[in-house]
């Protein structure tokens, strides 16, 4: 009578799902359980539907669900493997696995490349770099003259674009970050090595003692 629509059913993970996720990742079963506690917290912060919406990720990182941020959009898109506008728990684990301190460097290099390849052409293009530099300048309320901005981008491409075709391919990117490992600092989250201590409440629901 009132246009009743049932609420979407929350996905409840069975112990076998958590075990499988542990096998597919660098996390133990207890760590997957602790990550599930984090996921539940994030996915219920605005809409309690067992899925992380972009606004919920934004709320967690910026303490506000309002506004837009180019970089957060890219992070969200890479977490959202199914490209359906929400992050499911499995996608959350897959992405955070790359940020694990013990994840292979190759995975971090690849993830960072995909972050910066805004148009997903398989290259980091000069226009994309310029767009990201302008976005970070706006985000941090820094002012740079156009000349200095162009100079910074020129220098970056002088260093990174080995074949001088005006775009950075994956091999060039890999060589560039190996010379500048600081560029991957955001690709490692030390918290993930001791995730069970951040979310000790997992012990109330645990299915196994690691």
């Amino acid at each position: 009578c009132f246009g009743y629509r049932p609420r979407p059913k929350k996905c409840i993970y069975e112990f076998t799902d958590l075990t499988r996720l542990a096998h597919e990742s660098r996390f133990s079963v207890n760590e997957i359980e602790a990550l599930y506690e984090l996921f539940k917290k994030l996915s219920s912060s605005i809409i309690d539907d067992g899925l992380i919406h972009k606004e919920e990720l934004q709320l967690a990182l910026f303490q506000t669900p309002i506004g837009s941020n180019l970089f957060l959009d890219r992070v969200f898109d890479l977490f959202d493997e199914k490209r359906n506008g929400v992050i499911e728990f499995e996608e959350f684990v897959h992405a955070l696995n790359v940020f694990h301190p013990c994840a292979p460097l190759e995975d971090k290099v690849d993830f960072a490349f995909r972050l910066y390849d805004l148009r997903q052409t398989g290259f980091i293009e000069r226009e994309e770099v310029k767009q990201m530099v302008i976005a970070i300048l706006m985000e941090s309320e820094m002012n740079l003259s156009d000349d200095l901005l162009e100079e910074i981008i020129d220098k970056t491409f002088d260093d990174a674009d080995a074949d001088k075709d005006g775009k950075i391919n994956k091999e060039e990117w890999k060589a560039f970050v190996l010379r500048n490992p600081n560029l991957l600092r955001n690709m490692t989250l030390p918290h993930l090595k001791c995730i069970t201590t951040f979310f000790p409440s997992f012990v109330y629901n645990t299915g196994v003692e690691d």
């Binding site: 984090l38 994030l42 967690a60 990182l61 910026f62 941020n69 180019l70 970089f71 957060l72 959009d73 890219r74 992070v75 940020f99 972050l115 910066y116 770099v129 990201m132 530099v133 976005a135 970070i136 300048l137 985000e139 941090s140 100079e151 910074i152 981008i153 220098k155 970056t156 260093d159 500048n180 600081n182 560029l183 600092r185 955001n186 989250l189 918290h191 951040f198």
Partner: peptide, 24 residues
């Protein structure tokens, strides 16, 4: 010497996921 463009870009808060683990 000039900044590397990616040095600047990597400063974005949007790329810093450590905020996920912060207490409310």
């Amino acid at each position: 010497s000039l900044f590397n463009a990616f040095d600047l870009i990597s400063l974005s808060e949007g790329f810093d996921l450590s905020g996920l683990f912060e207490e409310d």
